[in-house]
Every structure is written in structure tokens, then in C-alpha cells.
């Protein structure tokens, strides 16, 4: 089994594509840093205490709007929200404009990580199908190993690949963050916005590991889906195409979650649960649906996918 793993790892890194993916992650991260820096450059490097004055000024501005009265209801609502947020920030002692490498990491890692998901899905869906496609699978299966061992070694290789990509991303991120925004404390305070609830005031140390961990589990699920589906296809192109389609359609379909959340069956399909990083901020993504429920549903689907494709592969005739 060790030999199979080593072989898969060697094959993976002998492909140009793998190095291209790794390089792309580094370059995208560097590019994002520059974009990020140019947008927030003017609001950083304020003097100590200036940010409190700024927040207070904003509060009094909004209060004036409320006092003078306005016809637009949404303006009132927005003013009230801004006041509330600013007061909470003041109370928690969080400078919304403060920037250092840790805050930068917390804010940007996941946006680049979606490229890792894309690349990993491509690798996952081609690692089996490409070998069936070009005939090398036959030479693997006539060796003294069980078929499931061949599959498992490939699966582990894909997961290891995604970890290498993640580590590379985080290291690049920290390097760029340190160069551009200086070092900061791992327990810097941050505010997290979320689609599912109000802002959450916390520290990088509290939220970042949860975000990364949940993101990784989410990605693992995509890997399992694309890896399993690709086994059913002979053609590498078809396998990769379908996996990417599923990856993108998932986020589109999640847009319908609000409409479908009330139906009894919706929470039992895997789609809405493929948004695990949301749990870093909120407790429930739908009424009554918490992280435990989501993980259970995903685990059941994962086992079903792996089981079905594994049994299929074990019995498959390689004509």
C-alpha cells in the first residue's frame, strides 16, 4: 500500500499541471494582496485613537439623519444599523480599519481557497479516469494489489495534494500580509459578517481555525463527489467537466435555499449543507439545521458515494 501511495505521489508531481496549479495559487494570492492593498491603503496607518473619533462622528451623523426625519424607511433602518454596529465596535474595542498580517489572513485566505477547491476537484476527477482513458489502469490492476487499494491510494493522494495547496496558500498569505501590513497578534480582534445572521465580534485565534477546518471538510466533500463520479466515466474530459459543473451549480442552487428551506425534504439532500464554513459564524444555516445535522447528512452521502463507486470499480470489467 505504501508503494502505491508513493507511486501516485510521484505520478502527480511529474505532471506539469500539478505545478501549474501550485504556481497559480501563489500568483493569485500575490495578485489579491495588491488589489486589497490599493483599496484600503488610504484608511490604514491612522494615528492611535483616531478610529474611535471616526466611528463617533459617523454615529452623530446618522443620529442627525434620524432626528431630522426622513420619508424613506430604509434610510432610517440603515442609520439605526450603522449606529448599532459602531457602538458595538467601540464597546468591543475593535478598530474596523486596523490591518495586520493576521487580520489579512483571516479575511483573504478563503477567497483564494476556492481556487484550491477547483484545482483539487480537477485532480480528483482525473486521477482515476485519466488512467482508464489512456490504458495505464490495466497495468495497475494486474499487479498484486486489490482494486480498492489502488482507489484508496489515489484518494489519499488527492487529499494530500489539497493539504499541500492549503499550506502553500497560508504561507504565501502570511508572507504577503507581513510585507504589506506588518505583523500582528494572532488574537487580533475582528468582526465577521454573515449572510445568515448579524455581525460577530471575535478574534482571529477563535475564528480562523474553525473557518479553515470547515472549509477543508467542505472541500473534502467535493473531492468525494467528483472522485466517485469520475470512476463511472471512461473519459477524463467528461469526468472533469461534470465535476466542475457540480462545483459551480452547487453555489447557484444554494441560492434557492431560502425558498426551499420550509419543505420537509430539502434538508435531507446534501446540497444546502455544502456551505460548512458558514458554521464558523452562525449556529444554524436553516431553522433547526445545525452543524451536527449537516455533518451527519454529508457523512451519509459521502459513504453512499464512496460505497457505490467502490463496489462498481471492484466489479468492473476492463474491456
Amino acid at each position: 500500500m505504501g508503494a502505491l501511495l508513493k507511486n501516485e505521489w510521484i505520478k502527480l508531481w511529474n505532471k506539469k499541471q500539478t505545478w501549474f496549479f501550485l504556481g497559480a495559487i501563489v500568483i493569485i494570492m500575490i495578485g489579491l494582496t495588491f488589489i486589497y492593498q490599493s483599496f484600503i491603503a488610504d484608511s490604514t496607518n491612522q494615528g492611535e485613537g483616531e478610529w474611535t473619533i471616526e466611528l463617533e462622528t459617523e454615529i452623530s451623523e446618522q443620529e442627525e439623519i434620524l432626528e431630522s426625519g426622513t420619508d424613506e424607511e430604509w434610510m432610517e433602518a440603515q442609520a439605526e444599523q450603522t449606529i448599532q454596529e459602531n457602538e458595538e465596535l467601540l464597546e468591543a474595542g475593535i478598530n474596523p480599519n486596523e490591518m495586520n498580517n493576521m487580520i489579512f489572513m483571516n479575511e483573504t485566505v478563503l477567497s483564494v481557497a476556492s481556487f484550491i477547491t477547483l484545482f483539487t476537484v480537477i485532480v480528483a476527477s482525473s486521477i482515476v479516469s485519466s488512467e482508464i482513458d489512456n490504458g495505464t489502469m490495466k497495468h495497475l490492476l494486474i499487479r498484486p494489489y486489490e482494486r480498492w487499494q489502488v482507489l484508496l491510494s489515489k484518494f489519499i493522494t488527492v487529499v494530500a495534494f489539497s493539504i499541500v495547496m492549503m499550506v502553500t496558500l497560508i504561507l504565501t498569505n502570511i508572507l504577503m500580509g507581513t510585507i504589506f501590513f506588518g505583523t500582528g497578534s494572532y488574537s487580533s480582534q475582528v468582526m465577521e459578517m454573515s449572510f445568515h445572521g448579524g455581525p460577530l465580534y471575535t478574534t482571529v485565534a477563535n475564528i480562523f481555525p474553525a473557518k479553515i477546518g470547515l472549509y477543508f471538510l467542505n472541500m473534502l466533500m467535493f473531492v468525494i463527489i467528483s472522485f466517485s463520479l469520475s470512476i463511472l466515466f471512461k473519459s477524463q474530459t467528461l469526468a472533469v467537466g461534470i465535476s466542475i459543473f457540480i462545483l459551480f451549480s452547487t453555489s447557484v442552487l444554494q441560492g434557492f435555499s431560502l425558498l426551499l428551506a420550509d419543505t420537509a425534504w430539502y434538508k435531507f439532500i446534501f446540497l444546502p449543507h455544502l456551505d460548512l464554513p458558514a458554521y464558523a459564524v452562525v449556529d444554524e444555516i436553516m431553522p433547526g439545521v445545525g452543524i451536527g445535522f449537516s455533518l451527519t447528512i454529508l457523512a451519509i452521502y459521502a459513504i453512499a458515494f464512496i460505497g457505490a463507486s467502490g463496489i462498481y470499480f471492484q466489479k468492473k470489467d476492463l474491456m
Partner: peptide, 19 residues
């Protein structure tokens, strides 16, 4: 069929390892 992005020797090494 072989992994054509690798040398003949590396291909053989893969198979040798599986023995």
C-alpha cells in the same frame, strides 16, 4: 500504455515498486 510525461526509467521504477 505508459505515463508518457515520465521517462521510461521512471515508468519502470513505478512498476518495480509494485512488485
Amino acid at each position: 500504455s505508459f505515463y508518457d510525461y515520465m521517462s521510461g526509467y521512471k515508468n519502470l521504477q513505478l512498476y518495480a515498486r509494485m512488485s
